[in-house]
Design a protein around this nucleic acid. Sequence first.
DNA 1: ACGTGAAGGACCC
DNA 2: AACCAGGGTCCTTCATGT
Length: 427
Amino acid sequence: SYGSVFTHAKAGMENVDRERVARVVYDATVGTPHHENETRKERATSKRIAAMKAKGQGMTKTEWETFGRRADERARAMERTRSGARKWLVVDMDGFYAACEELYDPALKSVPVGVAAGPSSVLTTANYVARKYGVRAAMPGFIAKKLCPDLVFVKPDFKKYVKASNESRGVFAQYNPDYIAGSLDEAYIEVTEYCEKHDTTMEAIAEEIRSKVKEATGGLTCSVGGGCSRRLAKVCSDFNKPNGQYILGTTRDDILKFLRDLPVRKMYGIGKTLERILNEFDIKTCGDLLAKRATMLALFTPKAFDFLLGIALGIGTECHPRETPEGSGGRKGVSKSETFKATADKAYLDAKMTELATEVALECQRLNLKGRMVAVKLKRSTFDVIQRQTTLAGPTNDVKTIVNSALRLMRNENSIGANMTLRLVGA
DNA sequence: ACGTGAAGGACCC
DNA sequence: AACCAGGGTCCTTCATGT
């Protein structure tokens, strides 16, 4: 199953020869430390699946019936919270970084483009020409080059992206200044009040936003999804990508029909691993998820069950995160990390860690934030990650305190495992 | 039984 | 020949103390 990250459907990749992509990825990576590490993680997942299956098989018929009744009860309880009253739009820019680069150099439009820091680092974005070859975001440059030898690499230039992002945000603010910026290229906008006040619809606003964003950015396109919750709007934003929109109805019937055949992998929060686990229990779509709710309740943790049931029913995330206790806090952390040619040189690693920890402290000062905990992240040449953390006496953003804590945490590890060869450090 | 800190991971863009 | 980011959030598990 290795490589499934790069073969699952993504906008603009419908006609890609997935077999070929899988083969090229495999041939290019088999035997590398990264591949070994992926295999290790897959084995851990296999073990987890085996434990879940054993637990399921060990349960009696009576126990299963109890889980069935309780799962039904949870579903009924969740149903009671269903409300189609809110109207959410999600705007997602199409191939954002690549599209920004094309704006400055239109010649790029007709050639395959990958935006990456270097030809061997991972792509942050691929334009739609490149996607035809199976090239996509998160793919290492050297594999992308194998799939598409003519691929043109462009280094990311965040000034361009911030500018375009601000231009698009000016449009979002017209509909709700309290929009949620998911990232530079994505926003959640609640338009319930706007629709009410201006007697309009999500469809009409989505059209407006798409044309205004194109205007404001000088030609960038975006896709818009709409629905009665952030979750549903988000999944809809991908439905007619690129340069399209899809507004889902807000009745229970509309939602369940939509979800019935929707692959679970499309939902925010379900990635490669969870997809694999669910597949093992014959769950491919959100409809399957609903049907197998008793299994979910029996085998997943309570939080995970609630999350999955919410997906299956299309309930949850109707409100702004600030309306919930958990979401009301601000920034949780500040970090800096860097990958380099793997080395065991202690002087080099110390210098790197000092540099990064200093940047973190300065960034905290700039943001007027203080931290109660310092953590370091070390990635070995074998790609396994070591994290070490320490709680401070009190909140601080003092450079010396943060640098010394980070160095102490790293040196501690270095003295235990002789010859630790690292390819990344971070604080 | 429960809160808390630490470590590891999954996931998102 | 070798080459797989960097910024985040959240959850789970385990050890530990009360």
